[in-house]
Amino acid sequence: MRYDLVIFDNDGVLVDSEPVSNTILAAYLTELGHPTTYEESVRDYMGSAVHRIHELVLERTGQRLPDGFDEVLQARVLDGFARELQPVKGIGEVLELLVAEGIPYCVASSSTHERIRAGHRRTGLDEWFEDAWVFSAEDVGRGKPAPDLFLHAARAMGVEPSRCVVVEDSPLGVQAAVAAGMDVYGFASMTPSDRLAAATGLFSEMTELPRLLA
């Protein structure tokens, strides 16, 4: 394998959380007087940290989201995860292959540590990720599309950015990986491939990933 570290995004790459979380986010924003469809939530917020939601709503409406927005959103998403979250099809086989070949991997996500861990427990992926291999936007000053999170993960794992590859499903994540000087493969399962065009390569089924990494 030509990389020394595989950095996985979490939502939509490891766990099939985007349909759950974006349905909940769209409904909550609409409830607060900011009408948002599921499709608009995916387009505008998929792959981003929660501060981006605040920034875009303020920029577009001149209104700030209420105090406690983050906590209510997180509680609703975690409840949704507990009821219906599933792992991305085929991710277990990819992780088995990396372990068999001795290739280090980690996760670098815009989600909070609590949300990442809750999703992993629900889907059984927690057995694949030690705490030291889990990185969140909470750990850095700026989330994606800034490169900070990926650079932080590479530094913590002791690997040069040029020897890392990122697996992402959002335009913001691809942008962050490119800015970090890393190869990035875009998982075009939910996101139209043209929105991931800046990626090193694209794939639509998780079973295709090992070939790209080889």
Rank of each mutant, 00 (worst) to 15 (best):
F81I: 05
A82T: 03
R83P: 06
E84R: 13
E84D: 06
E84S: 12
L85P: 04
L85F: 12
P87V: 00
P87A: 02
V88C: 07
K89N: 13
K89H: 15
K89C: 14
K89E: 15
K89T: 13
K89D: 15
K89P: 12
G90W: 09
I91T: 05
G92E: 04
G92H: 11
G92Q: 04
G92A: 08
E93D: 15
E93A: 13
V94Q: 00
L95W: 09
E96P: 00
E96Y: 02
L97Y: 06
L97H: 02
L97W: 14
L97F: 08
V99N: 14
V99W: 14
V99D: 11
E101R: 14
E101C: 11
G102E: 10
G102H: 05
I103P: 08
I103N: 13
I103G: 05
P104D: 14
P104Q: 12
P104L: 10
Y105A: 00
Y105D: 06
Y105P: 00
Y105K: 01
C106F: 02
V107A: 01
V107E: 03
V107G: 11
A108C: 03
S109I: 02
S110V: 00
S110C: 13
S110N: 10
S110M: 07
S110P: 06
S111Y: 10
S111M: 10
T112D: 09
T112P: 03
T112L: 01
H113W: 12
E114K: 15
E114C: 03
E114G: 02
I116N: 05
I116E: 03
I116Y: 08
I116W: 03
R117V: 14
A118Q: 06
A118T: 10
A118K: 01
A118M: 08
A118W: 06
G119I: 11
G119V: 03
H120V: 07
R122T: 07
R122V: 13
R122I: 01
G124T: 03
G124D: 01
L125S: 04
L125M: 02
D126V: 00
D126I: 09
D126L: 14
E127N: 12
E127V: 14
E127F: 09
W128N: 06
W128A: 07
W128C: 02
F129S: 01
F129I: 08
F129Q: 01
F129K: 06
E130G: 09
D131A: 14
D131S: 15
A132E: 14
A132C: 09
A132W: 13
A132K: 15
F135N: 11
S136I: 12
S136K: 02
A137C: 05
E138S: 07
E138F: 10
D139S: 04
D139E: 04
V140C: 06
V140K: 06
V140Y: 04
R142I: 10
R142M: 08
P145V: 07
P145K: 08
A146T: 02
A146V: 11
P147I: 01
D148P: 06
D148L: 09
